Amino acid sequence: MEELSIPSWVTKLKKIYEQDPIKWMWIAFTSLVAIVIISMLVFIVGKQRREASEIFADGLFALSNGDYPTAVQIFDKVRSSYRLSGVKNDAIFFSASARFGLERYNEAEDLYRQYLNTNPEPDFAAKAELDIGACREMSGDTAGALQTYKKARSKYSNSFLSKAFDVKIARLSYSVGDLKTAQEIYSRLETDTEGLWKEIARGNRRLVFIEAPKDSVSISNNSR
């Protein structure tokens, strides 16, 4: 019978091992530990994702039903205990929303800003900015809210929330006596093809025109 030949690469590995067996035993042991750790992390992440998804759904249910204290507890738990779940950032946003419902506006604003630091998608970032403005409003800071809305409107001009910013800006401009800005925005929105914004603008524009100086009304009407 012919003797089986040993592949050359096996012979080379044997020689390398014989030169420094302790080193290669250490490498083999380290590799084994790394494989075990990676396997454990995969298991932990998978488990966290499953558990967090279930808990997160409970938080959304509580939030939608106005149970803000429960929602805060749930979303805060997801934020602190399920960091590898993939929904931590979403939990920050909804925890802020729950705090807004509890009228804890400063806490809500802080969390919305923390959410923005996670670099969310533009539309979600725009919603956070919109809610920050609402926090400013509810805290009595009309000037701060107006500035927030204007800055966000410029930054997220292509967002589906751009017209929501317009309505907020027009309303607050009207409240601080800037009737010209309010007129211009409402007049523009009144020509919009989306019925919701058109009806909102139409009703509010009439209120502005009642208080606006006659020459301002004339200018606005001529510009349409």
Rank of each mutant, 00 (worst) to 15 (best):
D110L: 13
Y115K: 09
L116P: 01
T118I: 08
T118Y: 08
N119T: 00
N119V: 02
P120D: 11
F124H: 14
A126I: 04
A128Q: 08
A128S: 11
A128P: 04
L130M: 12
D131C: 07
I132T: 05
I132S: 03
A134S: 13
A134W: 11
C135A: 11
C135L: 04
E137D: 10
E137L: 12
E137M: 13
M138R: 13
M138Q: 14
D141M: 01
T142M: 04
G144S: 06
A145E: 07
L146F: 03
L146A: 04
T148P: 08
Y149E: 05
K151S: 15
R153S: 06
R153Q: 04
S154D: 15
Y156E: 01
Y156Q: 03
S157I: 07
N158Q: 12
S159H: 04
S162I: 01
S162W: 03
K163Y: 07
A164Q: 09
A164D: 13
F165K: 03
D166K: 01
D166L: 01
K168W: 05
A170I: 05
R171C: 07
L172E: 07
Y174R: 12
G177L: 05
G177Q: 03
D178I: 09
L179N: 01
K180T: 10
K180C: 00
T181H: 07
T181N: 08
T181P: 03
A182C: 03
A182L: 05
E184W: 06
E184P: 00
S187C: 12
L189V: 00
E190W: 04
T191L: 09
D192S: 11
T193E: 15
E194P: 01
E194Y: 08
G195R: 10
L196Q: 07
W197C: 02
W197N: 01
K198H: 14
E199S: 07
A201P: 08
R202S: 15
L207A: 15
V208H: 00
F209D: 11
F209W: 13
P213A: 06
K214I: 09
K214S: 11
K214C: 01
S218T: 14
S218M: 15
I219N: 09
I219D: 11
I219R: 10
S220D: 14
N222K: 10
